[in-house]
Design a binder for these strands. Structure first.
Length: 578
RNA sequence: GCGUCCUUAGCUCAGUUGGAUAGAGCAACAGCCUUCUAAGCUGUGGGUCGAAGGUUCGACUCCUUCAGGACGCGCCA
């Protein structure tokens, strides 16, 4: 539609013989936009404002000329000049009605498959081995998963990469402690409290010199490929990931065992990478370490700062691992686009690593590598979020608390739901509220963690959207009437329809910008318009004509369909009753 | 010292290739359940968009400077 209107404008400029006075870049800059305010029509263009200067005309006057020479097309009912010289286009209502009817029949709710499907690697979640996931892990996990769902829905091949922290010197200590525990308590250890495990291991390491020696020895052995240490290490990884996978399932996050690609995966590639960097003259020796210098990075004293790719003791750091990782994703996984959902604190490290990777020829021009950073979770005092005792809140605890609060609320409302259905409703609302609280914020900025806000069920929250869906289901339970041709009888209905037709744009914006909050805002506005419609337009009442009933039922059905699909793209479930 | 990000209503946040009167939710206040689920709806109050310049027909958005805050910067990841 936008292209159609744009062509009308261009035709008009041709007729006015103004085209030759307009530069190609100006012509390319002309665009048609969806309006924010319905009073400004459905689409608008600022073409006259942009061109006025170079054509030596007043913007409004130019707009009038353009409009006077516009060809008419059936989809447009009215063209208006407004403000300083905007041209506003009003879409024919009949056309809108037919569009809505099509939308209702379309299982994809008007969202077309992408014309150029890509292989996209999405790096997200990335918990650490031998640590329990804490609340702040929700950001990468939930935002990444929503983007994965959207990209897949658009027809891309998405490879989930859970870059778990499964390598490092701490594993010597952890293996030694696991060994000690197994000697004391036998095999098949049921390890649920990793925090205590880690703490106790550290204690042994600090206080028992023999233990510390053994730990240090195990690090060397593990890195050397020793079978026993490797087996013990695998046990730790499995214990952690078993717990994490359960949490993913509870959170309705699509990550599975098969998506785990931890840091250790790239170990075998590291010597080759370093040798290659050396051969290319990128890595040079400095104080025993191998370093890649990038002129744009300086250290505290303004001296050139290198990225160490091999330590003086021969060990490797995360720059080398990340270089190998990106090479692997491009060469082995054939990634055309790679998205990293990590803390914004990693921005500098990632960018310098990519710079090296480009210099080394690991990233071809056609591959897009993007950091999708998110801010930190802060406490109410604006400082990094900690509990009163200085620890972190476990993700599991947050989910438990959410479910308790929902259960409480159901009791207060004297809910008649019971059994399996009740359990499902509690789960959907609790998980939905938590995920939505994170998804609905622009991920770039730091944000304040607050129990009451995160577990709120009013206003711009998942339960509000779920409630809109349930209300619609309730209407269809109460009638045997069917949906029918759409007729618009009020401004509320017009607005609702316009919003329904904008679903595709919202979804595509999320795919492009990796910002799920765009979809949240869209769904919230859609629900708001539906609530307004619901309050002001009777649907099943006797005074409503059969035609209008059928039309309004179509609006209900289409809204429900878009809500369900939209929420599912965010990883949030709907229910027929709540 | 160098670099990245942030500052919008009492609180929490939207506002992303510059666009028309800066929007929500919470909190406060006033209404609406014999009527399709009140997790809702309607209304009121609340803002020099951190400050000052600049670019532009037009700036919360772009540029410069300043203030305040967060984060990163060689052998952890």
């Amino acid at each position: 539609m936008k292209t159609k209107i744009l062509n009308l404008i261009k035709d008009s400029l041709n007729q006015l013989k103004l085209s030759e006075q307009i530069s190609d870049s100006q012509l390319a800059a002309l665009k048609i936009e969806s309006t924010k305010d319905r009073a400004h029509g459905d689409f608008a263009t600022n073409a006259a404002l942009i061109l006025a200067k170079s054509l030596h005309q007043a913007p409004r006057q130019l707009a009038e000329q353009i409009v006077a020479h516009l060809n008419s097309i059936p989809q447009i009912s009215k063209v208006e000049i407004a403000g300083p010289g905007f041209i506003n286009f009003f879409i024919n209502q009949d056309y809108i009605c037919r569009q809505i009817e099509e939308l209702q029949q379309d299982p994809r709710s008007g969202v077309a498959l992408t014309a150029n499907p890509q292989t996209i690697v999405v790096d997200y979640s990335a918990p650490n081995v031998a640590k329990e996931m804490a609340v702040h892990h929700i950001r990468s996990t939930v935002i990444g998963d929503a983007c994965v769902r959207v990209l897949e829905f658009l027809g891309n091949k998405v490879i989930r990469a859970n870059h778990i922290g499964d390598w490092g010197t701490q594993f010597g200590m952890l293996i030694a402690y696991l060994e000690k525990k197994e000697n004391e308590q036998g095999q098949g250890l049921d390890l649920t409290d990793f925090e205590a495990f880690y703490r106790e291991a550290k204690l042994c390491f600090d206080e028992d010199p023999k233990f510390a020696d053994k730990a240090r020895q195990y690090v060397v052995q593990l890195q050397g490929g020793d079978a026993y240490c490797y087996k013990m290490w695998q046990k730790l990884v499995k214990l952690t990931m078993d717990q994490n996978i359960k949490l993913y399932q509870r959170l309705d996050v699509t990550l599975t065992d098969r998506d785990t690609m931890g840091e250790s995966l790239y170990n075998d590639m590291l010597p080759g990478i370093v040798a290659d960097l050396q051969q290319q003259g990128l890595a040079v020796e400095d104080q025993g370490a191998l370093v890649v210098y990038l002129p744009e990075y300086k250290n505290k004293d303004g001296e050139p700062l290198g990225n160490i790719v091999r330590k003086s003791d021969g060990g490797y750091l995360y720059t080398t691992t990340d270089l190998a990782c990106i090479k692997y994703r491009i060469e082995k996984l054939h990634a055309q686009r790679i998205l990293y959902f990590t803390d914004s604190r990693q921005a500098q490290h990632l960018h310098s690593t990519w710079k090296i990777a480009k210099l080394a020829g690991y990233i071809p021009e056609w591959v897009s590598v993007e950091h999708c950073p998110f801010g930190m979770m802060l406490g109410k005092d604006g400082k990094p979020f900690k509990t009163r005792t200085g620890g972190t809140v476990k993700l599991r605890e947050l989910l438990d608390e959410a479910e308790q609060r929902v259960e409480h609320m159901l009791e207060e409302r004297h809910s008649t739901l019971s059994g399996e259905q009740r359990a499902q409703v509690i789960h959907n609302i609790a998980i939905g509220a938590i995920k939505y609280a994170d998804l609905s914020k622009n991920r770039n900025t730091d944000y304040i963690f607050d129990w009451d806000q995160m577990l709120s069920f009013e206003g711009n929250t998942a339960p509000y959207l779920q409630y809109a869906y349930s209300r619609i289901c309730s209407i269809f339970r109460k009638t045997s009437l069917k949906t029918g041709a759409v007729v618009l009888s009020s401004p509320v209905e017009e607005e609702l329809c316009a919003k329904l037709l904008a679903f595709s744009t919202a979804v595509n914006d999320v795919a492009q910008k990796s910002l799920p909050n765009i979809l949240c805002t869209y769904l919230y506005e859609l629900s708001g318009l539906f609530m307004h419609f619901y309050e002001h337009c009777p649907i099943l009442k006797d005074e409503v004509s059969p035609e209008l009933k059928a039309s309004r039922l179509t609006l209900c059905a289409t809204t429900a369909q878009v809500l369900k699909l939209g929420l599912s793209l965010l990883g949030i479930q709907v229910m027929e009753q709540m």
